[in-house]
Amino acid sequence: MGIKINALKCTNCMACEMVCSYHRDDGFAFLSACIVAYRAREKKDYFGVLLKEEDVLIVARPEGLEINKIGEEADPDKEADASAKPMLLREGCDFCEDMDDYGPMCVAFCPVDAITLD
């Protein structure tokens, strides 16, 4: 099972980030999300989604997917985002295994179906 992100479909709404954090915190927050709508390059209208899995950081950019092994140097020309650093300290995606009624929360709540199960 894997999470598939279509960054071109994504509208940068942050729903995935909210519900991912909710599944860990049991309250509303963005703190613990392992999926993040990156949005710091707003003047350039450049946005996509970051997903932390156990040992890789997936950057779903509009131009394509990039998979970085955590611990290895990322391409300096393609610095992910201000959101990437705190992500590294968070727990990786567990596919919401504790959310029996929903399955992966980010898939269930993405309003435009930009996230699907592989």
Binding site: T11, C13, M14, M18, D45, F47, P62, P111, V112
Partner: peptide, 19 residues
């Protein structure tokens, strides 16, 4: 038109970026 984006958790992307 470049891309359209949405406000927080809003299903319709009502913001349009012009390049």
């Amino acid at each position: 038109t470049h891309r359209h984006s949405a406000d927080y958790f809003t299903p319709y992307a009502s913001n349009t970026a012009l390049f």
